[in-house]
Each structure stands twice: as structure tokens, then as C-alpha cells.
């Protein structure tokens, strides 16, 4: 068996190791090279026991070989093994890292809720009137008070979601034809069975184009 030790090994260390090995019934022969110290060991026990005996004393590389040629081969194999394990580690890091990077990015649905959708124009919506429009298939009631004062409220009654709200011109309020629920311009319940106010959406006016935000 060969144990390869670093060249920095002092003679005291080597003799201490020699004593340990002798105590275990091994005979050892030391040859000092420029890059490393090679310990040629022969004895009854196994390679693992030798490594175990040297561990903690010195950074030993124990290989069960018969000669230097086999040692070279073993080292090459070991380098390949390091490459294989390192490569696998990099693969795993990428395999998990890329999904995690995607995960950290806010999802499209969150971005979409901030988008404004053009729905109508000021010309088509007179003062003190309302217009039902669709924002992404959601029914929205666009209400204009005076001038450029605009409100976008959910077009469905909160008491029964299937009821489409209507604008009452005389009362200047939003009424539900199903159960008589009445909401004011800000979506608050004025009378009737509903208890939850209407959801409101942000309105953006660019020139005369009216745009409504997708999310509440």
C-alpha cells in the first residue's frame, strides 16, 4: 500500500507516524520526493484502517496499490470522479436554480392587474350619466359626474352576483333591478338588501380616452 503525504511533512511527523504504524504491526518505508512524501506500507490490515490511523495526524492520501504506475492510474480515476461529482452538482444547481429564478419573478397575473384598459371616451359618456363597459370580460359601470370626474364600479350587484346594475338618471344612483338594491356614485349601499359596497376600479383619463385598471 502507498500513502501519499504532502511534502511539508516534517521528519518528526514522519517518525511519529512510523511509530503508530509499527504499533499496529505495519512496516513502512519513506521516500521523500519534491512534490510529495511517499510512504510504502506493508502489513496485515486494510487500506481503510491505515487511512484511519493516519487521519488527523497528516493529510494522507492512502491508496492500495502495488507500484507507482497504479498510483498514477488511481489519481487519474480520482480526478475524473471529482469532475463527475462536480458536474452533477452544477447540473443540480442549474436544475433547481433556474426554476427558483423564475419563481422569484412576480407572476404575470399580478402585473396584469395593474394594466389599464381603454374602454370608452368622454364624447360617448355625457355628464351625470353612466355606461356599462367590459374590462376583461368583467362588467364595469363607468359613471361620469361633471367635467372630468369619473368613477368605475363593479357592474354586478353584491347581493346577487348575476344581477346587472343599471343607472337611474332621475335619482342619479345605481339601482339593481332584481331586489331593489340602491348604490350611490361611490358604490356605497343606500338602500335595499345588499350589505357589501361595490368594488371600485381606478380610472385614468388620457385626453378624452377613458381607461380602467384591470384589478380592483
Amino acid at each position: 500500500m502507498i500513502a501519499v503525504l504532502p511534502a511539508e511533512c516534517t521528519d518528526e511527523q514522519l517518525s511519529a507516524i512510523g511509530l503508530v504504524l509499527e504499533g499496529r504491526g505495519w512496516t513502512s518505508e519513506i521516500s521523500r520526493g519534491e512534490e510529495q512524501v511517499i510512504l510504502l506500507v506493508s502489513g496485515p490490515e486494510r487500506e481503510a484502517d491505515l487511512e484511519f490511523a493516519l487521519d488527523g495526524r497528516v493529510d494522507a492520501d492512502v491508496i492500495a496499490v502495488d507500484d507507482a504506475r497504479h498510483y498514477e492510474r488511481g489519481r487519474r480515476n480520482r480526478r475524473r470522479m471529482h469532475g463527475l461529482v462536480g458536474g452533477l452538482a452544477i447540473l443540480v444547481a442549474f436544475g433547481l436554480g433556474i426554476p427558483v429564478l423564475g419563481y422569484l419573478r412576480a407572476p404575470q397575473s399580478v402585473f396584469a392587474a395593474y394594466e389599464f384598459v381603454p374602454v370608452s371616451s368622454l364624447e360617448r359618456l355625457g355628464e351625470n350619466s353612466a355606461l356599462p363597459v367590459r374590462v376583461d370580460s368583467r362588467l364595469v359601470l363607468l359613471v361620469r359626474q361633471t367635467g372630468r370626474q369619473l368613477y368605475a364600479l363593479s357592474g354586478l350587484c353584491t347581493y346577487m352576483e348575476d344581477c346587472q346594475l343599471e343607472w337611474n338618471d332621475a335619482r342619479r344612483q345605481i339601482v339593481c333591478p332584481c331586489h331593489g338594491g340602491v348604490y350611490d356614485l361611490y358604490g356605497n349601499v343606500v338602500e335595499g338588501p345588499p350589505s357589501i359596497p361595490l368594488a371600485s376600479f381606478e380610472v385614468d383619463l388620457i385626453g378624452s380616452e377613458i381607461r380602467v385598471r384591470k384589478g380592483a
Binding site: 481503510a48 492500495a64 488511481g74 475524473r80
Partner: peptide
């Protein structure tokens, strides 16, 4: 013992057969 053949499989084999304490 080190497998006598070379290559990646031999490397893997030598590690798998490496005796531990």
C-alpha cells in the same frame, strides 16, 4: 483495490469499492 481499467466507469467503480472504516 483500484480497478485495472481506465475511464469514468472504472473511476466510479473504484470509489464504490473503496473500503470504509
Amino acid at each position: 483495490m483500484i480497478a485495472r481499467e481506465e475511464g469514468l466507469l472504472a473511476a466510479l467503480w473504484s470509489v464504490l469499492r473503496k473500503p470504509v472504516s
